[in-house]
């Protein structure tokens, strides 16, 4: 056993995959996770776009890969100091590690839908978020979803929106919305389902097919235009105002359920760690990488690496690919700068 460790902060898909690959490369990673279980947002999800594959299958696979790796759950980092190339890390429960490298995999937080007061989340009963709908698919336990006849999906909630200070695209919501729209239509075949979008960005493998399938097979109605206002009528039904920008007309409609596609914001859980490691954010609030091309896993701090959605919104395939790349970067770094003894 080597005395120096590779510290993986965050036990979501990015952290688990990075740890697994580092282990394969003969290094000794340890995963620090603040929650009581691994998986991050993946553990909350039911099915994954574009093919509606089970999220649990992927999670189990990732868990299986990391079963021999040391993990610290319910753990927080309370202090990090750097001495030469070695990081001395102290956890909140007093455990100490000497790490040769750190990989930040803290991921994202979902945008807080309350911030868009005009959508009425937290005010009107029948306004829910994408995460809550996913939870419903898993548990079928949500009183708000009761045989809805008309369902609306609002894309870009907290994304591409100057008014909440998030000007970036969250990348995953378009596909998630169409996936969820198909799934809820499957559940309630007699419901009318509307998607209110600004642009549909179906860029990935299989996404365009999902879009066609949603329209052809599931009769999902896609309306290009933003919902501007949600209110409740006397019967407690939601009344939304939107604009169909293709027809150039304002529209008004009553709904039984409105799903807000909350976008991604960099997880606040990394703030403290960033302070300790002196790592800044970009203007969009995500962690700054060394460049935008070949240094995506590097930070300006030597020995500190990043992977996954903590640097920008990412899909799962992107995240996993980036985790593997990060492992490679760590390996190369140790070979040149770090502890050659670690890399045989």
């Amino acid at each position: 056993m080597n005395e120096y460790r590779i510290l993986i902060i965050g036990g979501g898909p990015a952290g688990m995959e990075t740890a697994y690959q580092l282990k394969n490369l003969g290094l000794n990673p340890v995963i620090i996770e603040r929650n009581d279980k691994l998986g991050g947002h993946l553990a909350q999800w039911d099915r994954l776009f574009p093919s509606s594959d089970s999220a649990e299958t992927l999670l189990e696979k990732l868990k299986d890969q990391t079963k021999d790796i040391e993990k610290k759950l319910n753990a927080k980092i309370s202090n990090i100091t750097k001495e030469g190339n070695i990081f001395h890390v102290t956890l909140s429960n007093g455990i100490k590690y000497d790490a040769a490298a750190i990989v930040i995999c803290t991921g994202f937080d979902l945008f807080k839908a309350e911030k868009k007061q005009e959508y009425g989340y937290g005010i009107y009963n029948n306004v829910i978020t994408n995460a809550e709908l996913e939870d419903y698919f898993k548990t079928h336990n949500d009183k708000r979803i009761d045989e809805p006849k008309r369902i609306g999906f609002v894309h870009c909630v907290g994304s591409r929106d100057v008014k909440v200070n998030n000007t970036y695209c969250s990348k995953v919501c378009c596909a998630t919305a169409l996936k969820q729209a198909c799934e809820i239509k499957d559940e309630f075949p007699y419901a009318d389902v509307y998607c209110f979008y600004m642009d549909l960005r179906m860029f990935g493998k299989g996404y365009e097919d999902l879009y066609l399938k949603a329209q052809k097979d599931f009769d999902i109605k896609c309306v290009r235009g933003r919902v501007c206002e949600v209110s409740e009528n006397i019967e407690g039904k939601l009344v939304i105002k939107a604009e169909d920008t293709l027809l150039g007309t304002p529209m008004k409609m009553t709904l039984d359920l409105l799903v807000l596609m909350c976008g991604m914001e960099k997880s606040k859980s990394s703030n403290e760690i960033q302070k300790m490691l002196n790592i800044n954010n970009n203007e969009d609030g995500f962690i700054e990488t060394r460049d935008n091309f070949s240094g995506l896993n590097l930070t300006k701090e030597k020995g500190v690496f990043v992977a996954g959605a903590c640097t920008s919104p990412k899909t799962l395939p992107d995240t996993i690919a980036e985790a593997r790349a990060a492992a490679m970067e760590v390996f190369n770094y140790l070979k040149v700068n770090g502890q050659p003894s670690l890399v045989q």
């Binding site: 007061q117 005009e118 009107y124 206002e229 949600v230 209110s231």
Partner: peptide
């Protein structure tokens, strides 16, 4: 105020 339903509520 319609965009801030907490007020009308």
């Amino acid at each position: 105020s319609h965009l801030t339903p907490k007020i009308t509520r």
